[in-house]
Computed example of a mutant assay.
Amino acid sequence: MDPRNHSSVTEFILAGLTEQPQLQLPLFLLFLGIYVVTVVGNLGMITLIGLSSHLKTPMYYFLSNLSLVDLCQSTVITPKMLVNFVTEKNIISYPECMTQLYFFILFIIAESYMLSEMAYDRYVAICNPLLYNGIMSYYRCFQLTAAVYILCIIQSTFHTCLMLRLYFCKANIINHYFCDVFPLMELSCSSIYFNELLALVCSSFNVLIPALTILISYIYILYKIFHIHSTEGRSKAFRTCSSHILAVAVFYGSAAFMYLQPSSPSSVSSMDEGKVSSVFYTIVVPMLNPLIYSLQNRDVNVSLKKMLERRIFF
């Protein structure tokens, strides 16, 4: 599909997080550091799980996929965002913008469902330990993961195709630090009814279904934990659950604030609030996930220690 047939705009300008010059350098250094930690953490986790024979379990299979999604999602957003802090105008071409939109939607939806699959895996492990190996077989884990990626590709394709049909003839300044659905729709001078409808339906589905899955899983998990007689066992389980729930709350809360609020194109303050909330689920959460899901895990720490000792020995 040739973009020139649908838009007189050949490039966009990303407004970024702030227009205050004194904040540009501090924010650049901050988000550069976050991106480095994100890449090292997630890439390291993928490598560790792939090389360690002790981590060949369904839990770490899902974790490696979550790390891959976080790594890709951060790479789609952050490098272009960093450019905005060191250039006077952060220009992105029409094809680049649509490509960024496509992969952002793909990975943000995948993040949502990966979190729910991890919660379901923990539910089976804690509440049905005798049936765990049968229920969470390698083939079943592969099916669940493949289904997530297929669903994400389908939805991302629909969103992008509907965006490509819009005609952009207004100002080309996107009030955001990346090409997102609602900021792009604000610039359109053609009907966005179907775009808004698809965004609302898909956003509701992709937030509520995984969130309900996580909530129900944890209700059963907590019920099981309360029946653990060991104080130490309950304390350890509660610490694990609280970290997971905190990360899930940050991700779904910020995503819901951005996408489940009524559309108000004239409200600049609403979009500015949305930019701040989107920082959490596009940049902060991918950095935190390797820490809260992995570095506090004893199996991961033992495997990492063994790998480092083996590397030093050689």
Rank of each mutant, 00 (worst) to 15 (best):
S52T: 13
F205H: 13
T47S: 07
A110Q: 09
S74W: 00
F178I: 05
G134Q: 02
E232S: 14
V268A: 11
I225A: 09
I173S: 11
S93A: 08
L14K: 00
N65C: 06
F107T: 15
S269M: 06
V9P: 11
M163I: 03
S294P: 13
T99H: 07
L184T: 06
K89H: 01
G274N: 04
A255V: 00
K305G: 08
C189M: 12
I228Q: 10
Y123V: 04
E88Y: 02
R234N: 02
A249R: 04
M81N: 00
F103K: 04
M118S: 11
L131C: 08
T78V: 12
Q143S: 13
S269P: 01
L17N: 08
S191G: 14
T157W: 14
F257W: 08
A146Q: 03
V207C: 14
Y139A: 13
I13N: 05
M258I: 13
Y113W: 07
K305N: 07
S191T: 15
Q296T: 14
N195I: 09
N175K: 09
S64E: 06
V302I: 08
Y259V: 13
L55E: 03
A249Q: 06
N301A: 06
R4V: 12
F178T: 07
A119E: 02
P79R: 00
L197N: 11
P26T: 12
N5R: 03
L246P: 09
I292D: 09
L25D: 11
F168Q: 06
L55G: 02
F158D: 13
I150K: 07
R4T: 14
Y35H: 15
I214Q: 01
S217E: 02
M114I: 07
C127T: 05
L25Y: 13
V40N: 00
T47N: 06
G134M: 00
C72N: 08
L208F: 11
A171S: 15
I221E: 11
F142K: 14
H227K: 12
N84H: 12
Y123P: 06
S93P: 09
Y281I: 11
S52F: 10
I46V: 10
K170P: 08
V201L: 02
V207D: 12
G44S: 07
T87H: 00
A237E: 01
Y113K: 01
P262Y: 01
G253D: 02
F168L: 09
L222Y: 13
